[in-house]
Design a protein around this nucleic acid. Sequence first.
DNA 1: GTGAAAGCGCTAACAC
DNA 2: GTGTTAGCGCTTTCAC
Lengths: 335, 335
Amino acid sequence: MKATIYDVAQAAGVSIATVSKVINQTGRISDKTRKHVYQVMEKLKYEPNMVASALTKKSTYTLGLTLPDLANPFFAEIARAVEDRGREYGFSVLICSTDNDPDKEVQYLSLLTQKRVDGIISAVRIQNDHFLKKMLQHHIPFVLITREMPTLAVDTVMVDDFLGGYLAGSHLVELGHKRIAILVEDMDNTSNLERIRGCRQAMANSNVMLDEGLVLISGYSVECGKSTMKKLLSIDERPSAVFACNDLLAIGAIQAAREVGLQLPSDLSVVGFDNTILATIIDPPLTTISQPIQEIGRRAVDLLIQEIKQEKVLKQRVVLLPDLVLRKSSAINIT
Amino acid sequence: MKATIYDVAQAAGVSIATVSKVINQTGRISDKTRKHVYQVMEKLKYEPNMVASALTKKSTYTLGLTLPDLANPFFAEIARAVEDRGREYGFSVLICSTDNDPDKEVQYLSLLTQKRVDGIISAVRIQNDHFLKKMLQHHIPFVLITREMPTLAVDTVMVDDFLGGYLAGSHLVELGHKRIAILVEDMDNTSNLERIRGCRQAMANSNVMLDEGLVLISGYSVECGKSTMKKLLSIDERPSAVFACNDLLAIGAIQAAREVGLQLPSDLSVVGFDNTILATIIDPPLTTISQPIQEIGRRAVDLLIQEIKQEKVLKQRVVLLPDLVLRKSSAINIT
DNA sequence: GTGAAAGCGCTAACAC
DNA sequence: GTGTTAGCGCTTTCAC
């Protein structure tokens, strides 16, 4: 059996309270006994049992992170950022991929509260905020990332989606594009809606009308983006540019365009969103709207920890600003 | 405060033992009281405290996963596979990125034991097996993935690196390449050594000698692969093909080649290793050695759970076989 | 079928 | 400086 605090106390000839104090560096302990206790712990290969201490301290020093899919590079990078920042505060992180499945989201959120994580960071899709509301009633520190929940008073770290869409739209319009298509995974969350709205606004500002028939819901993966794009390219008056609401779809669009024999960026301009590692790897390198991934993870953890430590009462929405990253997938419209 | 089992018991007019039994579906409870207890739990929004139950049951239902870097697509996919399979058994997973830093590895491994995870899956680099040995002495279920530890009796799930290297080498040799370079992140672990050995063997079988000067240690990232490759391409008698020991380096190599103005695959053939999503995105699509990522995660979890449930005593090394995935980055040598 | 009570390994008053 | 002790919220015999 694993050594317990009792074993250490006994072997060291002190009380368990003393051992506890040296472990946690609390109270006053003489140098002599402290060193002695350390030695004994070493000899017994004692590893403090954090589940026991969590039961008394009411703190597990672990954070929950739910996101759509850990295998998606964007979320993997987010997860890494969260992990790193959490580590700085002494927290580890329990990761849950929800596949955007409301059932899984609910299950995981419930699991995390049962495991008594100290706080939860969540890139949820749930639009019906009812469950989240319940969550918040449980008073468990909670930070939403990536998407906002307009109807909920919840800490949020996100990027300005409208501005992102606006930047993408402006860029394309400035390049002289008139027929611009938009690829979006779904219309179920505010983020995508805002990105589209931003793009539409930018176009309108230059008196370019967005043909609503060119706004296509394509689904989640590269494959989806590709097949949707193929359909789009087969229509009579095909667009000269496309704004894809995430890099995965943008890549699908590029692959589709090439398979159809188009040259990029001369025949078609593509702008993505996220600026994941994929954007640098695809050929041509993808012009995209960058999300400050590190910063999102970092700020989300900071907010969460503050709430956990009760250093803060004010809920807030942190809106980071996206950037247009110019690469080679967009060019002047020559049609 | 959160409701406890006492609150439920009191509100339901039964003992906590009864409540516990309905939660865990153990013992014999009448239909009537069971339903009643459920109702009360619902009303009180009771969430069982798993840290308390973990303390008694000595099982946290969480797995630890350590890997070099979660932001690396290969490991992100592994993590996702582990998460999914773990979930099927009712386990969640605590993820730790070590950056291949021995200190972090040791810290995380220690942290995981303190949190009393039920088992650990580890893609470690630590070549000095001393720490792992200690780990195993603690009798905590442990499965090594991705790399083997020849000197240790530890459950392992890995791919046959030698065969992988062999497949890569054979492919290149069959295409008529004589001057083949190898890009490797480091020589500190058996996997890379075996991949190189496999490649060398394949070449030798066809009487092609591996110029040891063309075996280059490049470091970890795409950038590293790129800069190493640039140097390699500037030498007098540049290679006509390169085997990169992972996709990231292969991509760096491709990017370097293009920047120098080479045509792929006609001027240079590149073969990678891992078959991550990146291989499908780079242009030209990367010919690579595929690791069965899903299967690795799945088998690792299976092994671990068996050990946790003590359904198995025999340690084993599961060696999965890699495949050559032909894409467009390799071609007949025309030099 | 149901309940009383003894732990699980630790922390935090409080006493000395 | 150090020790005693009462929980933390649950599971699990063992009675009844």
